[in-house]
């Protein structure tokens, strides 16, 4: 147990590194790619939606924008997508900062609606800007130079690398002063401002960061599929999936979004395989989201850690009450009773 607790990250990494060599069929490479891709994007979404508490339903806009920028750069300028994607994603992040500056004047459900509107504007623009995007039929880009047999494996490792970067960024933000400010804002924006958090600036920055890895994911995806169209690039379901994964795994936790992606992406594939690409898939996604919200609003990770904590809580409360008694002579025996009952 102790061994696992200390080394599980390394073990997980080794498993992920070995996976494409154990399961050699291209299908598994493709599935692995999507699991890692969504884990990265959900981790990114979580920085805004989980830490800061501003839930964007329109992150697909950045996915699509990243996809189109990379595809256009590949076609017009001959830039290699795997090299250009991390740089072009910076442009998308800046666009997100600009849009965030406007949209983050709203909060709560108004913000959610604003993000959906943003996504629809992007989608309509992409459909109609035919000179650049080729409209509804979509845009093709050159195939990867390596042999088709292994074509998925480089993508798999490439996105694994970026997932690790995204996790590092998420971890670093959460333990930084910036992240502390974000979490305080989620709790109470007014109070956060009172103690000196620059809420406006922080919200906008978090929005930009959370757009970055989604845009990067979109760029890599466009190269992976080699053909993109507005319907799929600016698909609201891409954003919904990120949210669903984050909420299933644990909103606002570091590993929750990853866990969610590792459960949902294979599950979604299974559903598609069993029922085909029909509306049943949509109904199941929606139904699952409802179930998660009703029965596990905090997600797997938070529910489990809360459960473990609550098993120890009466003891902790007892200790707390006793040390209060150490400071004060007053009868904290009654207090202690109150504490314990409040933990029931």
């Amino acid at each position: 147990m102790e061994f696992l607790r200390r080394w599980w990250k390394l073990i997980a990494l080794l498993i992920l590194l070995a996976f494409p060599w154990v399961y050699r069929e291209p299908y598994y490479h493709s599935l692995g790619f999507f699991v890692l891709l969504y884990a990265m994007m959900a981790t990114s979404w979580n920085i805004m939606g989980g830490y800061t508490g501003y839930k964007s339903l329109g992150h697909s806009a950045f996915y699509g924008l990243g996809a189109y920028l990379v595809a256009i750069a590949a076609n017009k300028l001959g830039w290699n997508p795997l090299i250009s994607a991390p740089f072009l994603a910076i442009i998308v992040a800046l666009v997100a900062v600009l849009l965030g500056w406007i949209m983050l004047r709203t909060s709560g459900s108004a913000f959610v609606i604003a993000t959906i509107a943003m996504l629809l504007i992007f989608r309509i623009t992409a459909l109609n800007l035919r000179e650049i995007t080729k409209g509804a039929p979509g845009l093709s880009q050159p195939l990867p130079p390596w042999s088709p047999e292994f074509s998925r494996m480089p993508f798999y490792y490439y996105i694994l690398f970026w997932l690790i970067v995204a996790l590092f960024v998420s971890w670093y933000i959460r333990r930084s002063r910036f992240g502390l400010g974000l979490v305080a804002m989620r709790d109470d924006e007014g109070k956060a401002e009172m103690v000196g958090v620059n809420t406006t600036l922080y919200k906008i920055l978090a929005f930009g960061v959370s757009a970055y890895f989604v845009a990067l994911g979109g760029g890599v995806w466009s190269y992976f599929t080699s053909h993109i169209s507005p319907i799929y690039a600016f698909d609201i379901l891409v954003g919904v999936d990120m949210i669903l994964m984050t909420m299933l795994g644990g909103l606002g936790t570091l590993w929750g979004p990853v866990l969610g992606a590792f459960i949902l992406v294979p599950a979604r594939d299974l559903i598609l395989f069993k029922f085909g690409s029909t509306s049943i898939y949509l109904a199941i996604t929606g139904g699952l989201m409802m179930l998660v919200i009703i029965f596990m609003p905090k997600g797997f990770l938070t529910t489990i850690t809360d459960w473990v904590e609550n098993r120890h809580a009466p003891r902790a409360a007892h200790q707390g009450a006793r040390s209060m008694a150490d400071i004060y002579d007053s009868s904290s025996e009654k207090k202690q009773g109150e504490d314990e009952s409040s933990h029931e």
């Binding site: 502390l180 709790d187 109470d188 109070k191």
Partner: peptide, 23 residues
């Protein structure tokens, strides 16, 4: 109540010195 209920005690304490840039 002016504490942040969803944050830990330690995080609440750190919020007290938020304007301080020195960890």
């Amino acid at each position: 109540h002016s504490s942040f209920p969803e944050m830990t005690v330690k995080e609440n304490m750190l919020m007290g010195a938020y304007v301080l840039n020195n960890r």
